[in-house]
Design a protein around this nucleic acid. Structure first.
Lengths: 129, 129
DNA sequence: ATACATCCTGTAGCCGCTACAGGAGCAAGG
DNA sequence: CCTTGCTCCTGTAGCGGCTACAGGATGTAT
């Protein structure tokens, strides 16, 4: 059993964030020492690591909560997990497309700022339309 | 002079958002009718449109505030505006790179979910190290 | 006169943390 | 035993950038 600081170091999740995850019900409440301090088992620290990895992959908290539940249960988990993953992948692809459009627009505007002009093309673009 | 609803329609900025922009000091305070209702000139509506376009290009509010100020003043504005734009473009490119990495990771995981396996690869990846 | 739309202020909620304030516990050195 | 300094506790507020109320006043059309 480890205190929250140790759990934080081992899982890579910040102390405040661990408490937040607990409040938000993403991870269960750990046991407590007689003085009321949180005590984490290795399995619980593993769950924190799981959450961090999910977040690193960009899954929203709601998805991570669902994935945690799936990892706990057995059976048809993989189909459901793959569904969640596929939906998230779609969202990531859409976000990329959106940012690519943005990038194109910005590149055009900034490039035109290099050439000769009286009025700033970037500012003009924002005023127009 | 136009009421806030008309200003919203003409600028494409929501009513609540316009008031938020005013509170946040992104746009100045408009005049008021005798009864205390906001009245917007065409120029002020233009400024709202400017803010919307900046936001559409993904500029954070602080940048938009700066760009509004530049559009108001004259002189060396373009160099500064181009600098703000270039910095934002860099941020957009970094975000894209990050999402591309994410996309790759997700694609790998989800693809492996299609093939034969005992343990779900996606869930396993989250549990592992 | 009445119905309905529009406007006002002020406050709270969203996400996912992060950063306090103000206190209590705990291990080690003097 | 006492102090020092670290960790931990709860509770609350802040970030960005809105969005959505509640509860009231005002404007317009019939």
């Amino acid at each position: 059993m480890h205190a929250i600081g140790e759990a934080s170091r081992r899982s890579g999740v910040g102390i405040e964030t661990i408490r937040y995850y607990e409040r938000a019900g993403i991870v269960g409440r750990p046991g407590r020492s007689p003085a009321g301090r949180r005590l984490y088992s290795d399995a619980e620290i593993g769950r924190l690591r799981f959450v961090r990895k999910g977040r690193d992959l960009g899954f929203p908290i709601a998805d991570v909560r669902a994935l945690v539940a799936l990892a706990g249960g057995g059976g048809v988990s993989c189909t459901i997990a793959a569904g969640i993953g596929a939906a998230h992948l779609l969202a990531v692809r859409q976000k990329i497309d959106e940012l690519e459009r943005l990038r194109g627009a910005l590149e055009g505007l900034i490039e035109s700022c290099g050439s000769d002009h009286n009025t700033c093309p970037l500012l003009a673009a924002l005023v127009a339309g």
